[in-house]
Design a protein around this nucleic acid. Structure first.
Lengths: 163, 163
DNA sequence: CTGCAGCTCATACTTTGGGGTGATTTTAGG
DNA sequence: CCTAAAATCACCCCAAAGTATGAGCTGCAG
C-alpha cells in the first residue's frame, strides 16, 4: 500500500493544504481570539478535516487494487514419443507398456491403485503382504518416473496403460 | 468507496480513538496550560495523527475494485497423439456436480488432486496454506463419499465431474 | 440484523504412503 | 541345469495424507 509515492503532486498538494489550514487557523486566532475552553471544538474540527483528507489521500494514492489475475499453466511434455498404437474404443498402449518395463504384477497393482484402493486393500486382494505391494508400487513409480500414486494414475491413463 | 460501512467495528474503534485523543488533549490542557502560541503545534499534531488514522481507515474499508480471477489451464503437449482424443470433448456433468454440493474451491482442489499434485503443491498453486487444502480435501472426500484421494479421482472421473 | 455457507487457518493426532536396503523363493529361458 | 528376472517379504524411518476440532472472516439471503 501507498507504494505509488512517486506521485509527488498529491504529497505537495497535501502539504500545501495543510499549510493553508494552519494559516487559516492562525488567521482565526488573530480574528477571534481563541478561547481556551473552545479548544476541543477546534481540535475536533481539525481531526475531522484531516481524517477526511487522509481518506482522500489514501484513496488517491493507493494503487487501484487490482488483485492479481493469475494464469497458471501446466506444461506437460512427454519425454519420449508415445509410440502410436491406433486404438478405437479402448485398448492398452502395449508399446508404452513394454517400453516402461512394467511387469504384469506391477500392472495389476497399478490398476488397483487407479481404482482407488489402499496398499492394504491391494495386498488383501492379491493375497500378498503389504510390503510386497509397497515394493511393487515403488518400482512402479520408478518405471513411470513419478513420485506419487496420484501422479502414477494420471500418467498411466495418459499413456493409455490403463483405461 | 467506503461502501462497506457495515463493519461498525472499525467505525467504533475510530470513534473511540478520537474520543481518547480528545480526553488526552483535555488532560494535557489541565496539566500544562496550553499556551496560545503553541496551539499550532497541537493542531499540527492532531492533523498528522488523524491523517494517519484516515489513511488507515480508508485502506481498511476500501474494498478491492476488481475481483481476483484465477484461471487455470492445463496443457498437454505430446509429441505423438495418443489413442483416443479424450481431452477436447469433455462435458462436465453439472447435475452430479451440484448434487454433490462441491464448492468451486473444492472443485479446484479436486482437479489438482487428479492432476497428481501433493497437498503442498496445491497449497502453493492456490496461494493458501497446507491446512486449508487439507480441509478442502477432507470436505471433498465427505461429499464424494470416499476415503482416499485416489478414490476421489476415480469417482469424480466416473461422475464426469472432472475430465 | 441475523444466520448460514464458503473460505481460510491452526493444532494435534493417527494412518497411510513411500524410500532404502536386503533377503528368499519362484519361474521362465538359454 | 543354471541364471536372471520376477515376485515375495521384512524392517526402519520419514514424509504425506487424512481426521477432528475449533475459530475467524466475508458475502449473501432471508
Amino acid at each position: 500500500m501507498l507504494k505509488s509515492l512517486a506521485r509527488y503532486k498529491h504529497i505537495v498538494g497535501y502539504g500545501l493544504s495543510l499549510a493553508a489550514l494552519l494559516v487559516l487557523l492562525r488567521w482565526l486566532e488573530l480574528r477571534f481570539i481563541i478561547i481556551n475552553n473552545a479548544f476541543q471544538v477546534y481540535a475536533g474540527a481539525i481531526a475531522v478535516i484531516f481524517t477526511v483528507l487522509g481518506v482522500w489521500l489514501a484513496l488517491r494514492l493507493s494503487k487501484p487494487k487490482i488483485n492479481t489475475v493469475v494464469i497458471e499453466k501446466e506444461l506437460y511434455i512427454e519425454k519420449e514419443p508415445v509410440a502410436a498404437t491406433v486404438t478405437g474404443d479402448f485398448a492398452i498402449n502395449h508399446t508404452a507398456l513394454t517400453k516402461s518395463g512394467i511387469s504384469p504384477r506391477e500392472l495389476e497393482v497399478l490398476r488397483l491403485i487407479a481404482a482407488g484402493h489402499s496398499n492394504q486393500e491391494i495386498a488383501d486382494h492379491l493375497y500378498v503382504s503389504l510390503n510386497t505391494v509397497k515394493t511393487h508400487s515403488s518400482n512402479l513409480f520408478l518405471k513411470l518416473d513419478v513420485k506419487r500414486r496420484t501422479q502414477a494414475i494420471e500418467k498411466a491413463k495418459r499413456l493409455s496403460i490403463i483405461p
